[in-house]
Amino acid sequence: MRDQYVVVIGGTGFIGGHLLARLAADGISTRVAARHYERAKHLTTLPYLDLELADIHDDATLRRLLAGSMAVINLVGVLHGGHGKPYGPGFRRLHVDLPRRIAEACRDLGVARYLHMSALGASPQGASMYQRSKADGELAARSQPQVASTIFRPSVVFGPGDHFLTMFARLQRHLPVLPLACPGARFQPVYVEDVAAAFSLALREPHTRGATIELGGPRVYTLAELAHLAGRYSGHERRVLGLPDWAARLQARVFELLPGDPVISRDNLASMKTDNVVDPRTQALTAEALGIKLTSLEAAAPHYLATPRGLDDYREHAGR
């Protein structure tokens, strides 16, 4: 497949780095769109990768990127997108408008495949703006019948460089007690390399065209269990204090008022009202159906959570 290439949008983040490494290992050439070189320079050592500095929100630029490609993968997503009905402007722009524009560009340019990252829990009737915008994004990705779209719905994704288990480990390095909202919320964490394998396989397997693929790991955990494991594997296990709903909402409101992306928002709390697990009733494909042997959290997480952070710790204390 080296004579053709796949365009990856949103490839500079956590999942993108692992996916691009997997595609390179499988001999698949890629073109990666990045707005800032500094955020993407770590990818330039990968073989068969062409880095393009581009603004994907400009239609002419987007179409130039996609022209001549065999497929496009869209990994773009945000947890915080402002407020509004049925969702805030950030959610609309990135979760709905962008996939619609990608699908239209694929139609006009003859790009046959579109692999779209959604999320478990996506629903037009979802309790959160995130869930509702993800559902509308799936419809947008499938809006062009000439384009064979594949929708991926992962549970929370873990692995080296994640922002989930690593966050719980970091908090427990500094806090004597971990106050936790929605401690009973259920998740089915999936290893990032298994997610990357699913995308790579879908590019080559014709039966994934038009399919929805739900990705969950081999075991379901409560949020409290995941927080405990993150602390244990990092060597800083603390007591986890489950917060009642009123205190969780107050905590989220305070975090929303602080600069930068909040650790947790009220919309995140709404998302956690729905179990973030694979639902066999949807009759979606799964990682197992693709022949992927799932990696357990217990097998992978201790290795990267227990690794001394070295330079990262220095930067954290230096405020960089």
Rank of each mutant, 00 (worst) to 15 (best):
S123Y: 07
R132I: 09
A127S: 13
L139D: 14
G110V: 14
S133W: 03
G110P: 14
L109E: 11
R153L: 08
I151Q: 01
V147I: 07
L120G: 00
S149D: 00
S123K: 03
R153V: 08
Q144S: 03
G126K: 00
L115E: 13
P124S: 09
F158E: 08
L115N: 12
Q131A: 15
D136W: 02
M129R: 10
A119H: 10
M129P: 00
R132G: 11
H116A: 04
P124H: 13
V111Y: 11
Q144L: 06
E138T: 01
S118H: 08
V156H: 03
G137V: 08
V111N: 12
V156W: 04
F152N: 01
T150I: 08
T150A: 05
M117S: 09
R142Q: 14
F158T: 10
K134W: 05
Y130P: 07
F158H: 13
A112K: 15
S133M: 01
P145K: 00
R153G: 02
G126S: 05
Q146R: 14
D136P: 01
S128H: 02
A148C: 12
A127T: 12
V111D: 11
V157Q: 06
A119C: 11
Q146V: 12
Q131P: 04
S123T: 08
R113E: 11
M117N: 10
S128L: 05
V111S: 13
R113D: 11
F152S: 01
S143N: 05
L115F: 11
Q144R: 15
V147W: 05
G126M: 02
V156E: 07
G126V: 03
A112P: 15
H116K: 03
Q131Y: 04
A140G: 10
F152W: 01
H116L: 04
S155Q: 12
S133V: 03
A127Q: 13
L139P: 00
K134R: 14
S155M: 12
L139R: 15
G159S: 11
A141Y: 09
S133C: 01
A122M: 07
R113L: 13
S149A: 15
H116S: 04
Q131F: 05
F158V: 11
S118G: 10
L120S: 00
Y114S: 05
P154F: 09
A127V: 07
G137E: 08
S155V: 12
Q144D: 05
M117G: 03
G126L: 04
G121P: 05
M129A: 15
P145T: 05
V157E: 06
P154G: 09
M129C: 12
K134S: 07
A148P: 01
A135C: 06
A122I: 06
A140H: 03
A119E: 07
Q146I: 02
A112F: 05
L139K: 13
G121T: 06
S128M: 04
